[in-house]
């Protein structure tokens, strides 16, 4: 099966214009519904349908490896957040949930600020939860202090992740779904998982007409210290992204990634392999909204006009 991606002359537009133009088309078609905040949208019927079908398609591929299947809410324990280095590495992307915990007096004080249009958020206190920045994060604390069986563990995950990065780029949403498959175990097992999905992920995307190129990438680590982190992540080829042009050929968009975490999560949560060593981990993740955006870009905004083989692979008929 070989599906050629459609050619789009407007991929040559300046990136900002291209973002707004594609976003305008998606909104006009009812695929995305603006909610008044950049990067936060409702999803229309056909957009959601593509996401659900691609999600099921990934789930079928994942099932070939017989993983455990787990689903977590888009929130996780604030005390677990303290055990990962997210606040050091990505402080600008975090989402911290706050709520009101005061009494009558404090309520009246907050209401006064609210009515006067002042900043009432200072009267809130942190809740027990943080927004989940990556959907595999809630998994590791559930394994804390434990020993993995021989062969490690494979876990299939899907859910919403939050990253505070408001943007006009429809592919840079603040809240979006990922489908991930995680492997924890010996270093060789984690690397084998990463390399398996580098090949398999590319196959899955090509079969739906997305000619995704795997490239060595880095996470958007914060600040000057982040420059070191980015360089080291690239030096060790810890992260690969599947990139496809959505709005810009020069700045293609990552629709998925394969990541080797070394023992980062194993050490943070004291997870051990069967031989007693600190567990290593790796994951593949598909950004479901981004895949949908790439599919609508490649094949057009009307699903009925998509190539027959793509509709067949995604069970869209």
């Amino acid at each position: 099966m070989c599906v050629q991606p459609a050619e789009h002359g407007d991929l040559a537009l300046p990136t900002g214009d291209a973002y707004r133009e594609y976003l305008g088309e998606l909104v006009a078609e009812g695929l995305l519904v603006p909610m008044g905040v950049r990067g936060v949208y409702g999803r229309g019927r056909d957009f959601e349908r593509v996401i659900v079908r691609f999600d099921e398609y990934v789930a079928r591929a994942s099932a070939e490896l017989a993983p455990e299947v787990l689903r977590f809410p888009p929130l996780f324990n604030r005390s677990d957040y303290r055990r990962i280095d997210h606040i050091h590495n990505f402080p600008d992307l975090m989402g911290s949930v706050h709520t009101f915990t005061g009494g009558e007096l404090e309520h009246r004080e907050m209401l006064g600020k609210f009515e006067r249009g002042e900043d009432w958020s200072r009267n809130l206190a942190p809740a027990e939860v943080m927004m989940t920045p990556a959907i595999c994060y809630p998994l590791y604390p559930t394994l804390a202090g434990g020993t993995l069986p021989e062969g490690g563990r494979r876990v299939d995950l899907q859910g919403f992740a939050f990253r505070h990065e408001p943007s006009d780029d429809p592919a840079r949403m603040q809240i979006f779904r990922m489908h991930e498959v995680v492997r924890l175990g010996l270093p060789g097992e984690a690397l084998e998982h990463r390399d398996y999905w580098l090949a398999r992920g590319g196959e899955l995307l090509r079969a739906v007409g997305l000619h995704a190129t795997p490239v060595v990438a880095n996470d958007p680590f914060f600040g000057r210290g982040g420059k070191v982190q980015k360089a080291m992540q690239r030096e060790q080829s810890l992260k690969y992204e599947f990139v496809v042009p959505i709005c810009s050929a020069e700045k293609p968009t990552a629709v998925g990634s394969c990541n080797y975490h070394l023992d980062h999560f194993g050490a943070a949560f004291d997870i051990r392999s069967h031989d007693g060593s600190t567990a290593h981990s790796a994951c593949v993740g598909f950004g479901l909204e981004r895949v949908a955006l790439a599919l609508f870009r490649a094949h057009g905004l009307a699903i009925g006009a998509w190539p027959r083989d793509v509709r067949h692979v995604l069970a869209l008929d």
Partner: peptide
């Protein structure tokens, strides 16, 4: 030495 402790050392 980890990547995060590299940052702390650098600073």
């Amino acid at each position: 030495l980890t990547s995060l402790s590299t940052v702390n050392l650098m600073l």
